[in-house]
Each structure stands twice: as structure tokens, then as C-alpha cells.
Amino acid sequence: MPLQSILPQLFINGLIAGSVYALAACGFALVYYVVKFQYFSQGAILTIGAYIFFLFLNLMGLNYILAAILSIIISILAALTTNWLVYRPLRKRKAGGVPLLVASIVILIFSSSLMQALFGSSTKTLLLSNQNKVFTFGFLTITLFQIAIIILAFILFFLLFYILMRTRLGKAMRALADNKDVAQIVGINPEKIYNYTFIISAVLGGISGILIGLEQNLYPRMGVLIIIKGFISSVIGGLGSVPGAIVGGLFIGLVENIGIWFLPSSYKDVISFSIMLLFLLFRPQGILGVRMRDDN
């Protein structure tokens, strides 16, 4: 098939993958923006969200809306627990970026071992009724569920912007991100806002975990693979920028899916990583031109 006729399909596939990456990336970016560390354990939250959904839906036979709500609640609890048990004590001892980064990678890997211990290492499949209902437009095919992913992702992006730009909480988050000392002087309690930040990113993480679980499959390492894409998206869009993470996620989704027309599909990771390296070397502030943190 010539490229022109398959291009719309690749574009749609890219948009689906991109929406998922962007969802994973914006939780990561939100924490990086407000709390100032590389929040890889967003991948753990994603994994937990997906597996808890699987537990309630498939193993306990709950209604899918109830299962989703419960799994988002548990994702929130998981994120708050990691903050209370690990990140807050590290901030208290004034640890630099490296221990926080190491801790977040460890929590990420921990979640995959935990899921392996609890649910076994085999791949699990989630399925909703109507999920695979296919729409065909000429060469183009897309499932009902994939349309739902794209729409839901954009609703969530809109809500996130609304919270950040229009609410008191969002203002406090931006103030804290801009200058912690000044924010404290005007009466903002950082720990309280950090908790809200973890809650919001956990909601995004739980939902993206469920969506990824439905679209692909469940396996213990899913969080590791997705959050790496989320974080590459975040770097490409502009590290520390929430809109940047979304733009970066969509960009990576599109490039990977159009790129596999030219390269074997298993080189997806190499494509996105190489693009990230090019950005780091030649445009470290990312697509949206966010100024990078100055270490001087």
C-alpha cells in the first residue's frame, strides 16, 4: 500500500498513542513543575490503577464505572502514601535531586515486582462490551474505544488547564512552582499544595492506567515502559511544562507511528529516544521553549 493511503491511518494511530503518552506525561510534568523532581513513580501509579481496575472488573465482577472510581481512589491513596513515606522525609532532610530521582525509579520498579508477586507475571486482558466496535471510513479504521480515549484525554487536558489557570489551587501551585520562598511568605503551605498535586497527578495516572490496560494489555512492567515515553514527551515538550508534556506526547505518538512505516516497529523506542537526544543537545528548552532550571 502506498504511503499516501495509509498515512491517515498512521496519523490516527499516532493520535491515539500520543493521547495516552500525553496523559502519562502530564502527571509527570505536573509534579516536576510544582514539587521539582523527576516523578518516575507516576508509572507505578499507572500500573496500580490498571491492575486494581482489573481486580474489581474481571476478578470481582463489579460494574466498570464503579471499578474505575475505586481504582482511581486507590491510585490516589498510593500516590499520597509514597509522598508521606518517601518523598516528604527526603524533602525534610533537604535531599537533592538525585535521591528523589533514585527513590522514584525504585518505587517504579517496586510496583512491577509487587504486581508480579500479587497477580503473577503473565499478561492480563481487560475487555468491555462494545469496546472493539469498529468504525471504517475508506482505508481508515478506528474502534469506539479509541475514539473514547482521544475524547477523554482532551477533556482531562482541558480540566487540568482549568484547575491550573482558573482556580485558587492552581494559582497556589503556580506560585509554588515559581518561587517556593515567596509562596510561603504569602501564606501558601507547600506540603498541602504538594498533596493536592500528587492527588491530581494520581487521578490522571489512574485513568491513563485504565485506558492503557484496555487498549493494550496488563503486564507488571507496563508502568516502566509507559512512563519512559511520558518522560521523553515531557523533555521534548519542555521539561517542567504541563502544556509542553501534552504537545510532546502527541508529537512522540505521531512520529513513532509514522516512523514505523520506515523502520521495524520494535525500533519505536529508539526513534523517540533519538529525538529526545537531539532536543537535549540542540534545543534543551523543548518545543514550547520553557527555560531550563539554572543550576548556578
Binding site: 523527576q38 535531586g97 519512559i228 521539561l239 523506542d269 529516544f273 537535549l280
Partner: peptide, 20 residues
């Protein structure tokens, strides 16, 4: 690359190595 970015790129090597 500055601190943060060096860590990011070296972490990325893991996924490149797996892919290759």
C-alpha cells in the same frame, strides 16, 4: 549536559540497549 539531563539520557540508554 547539565545534571538533570545527563541522568535522563543515561537512563534512556537502557531502553536503546534493550531495543537494539
Amino acid at each position: 549536559l547539565k545534571g538533570d539531563y545527563f541522568q535522563i539520557v543515561t537512563l534512556g540508554l537502557v531502553f536503546i540497549a534493550i531495543a537494539i
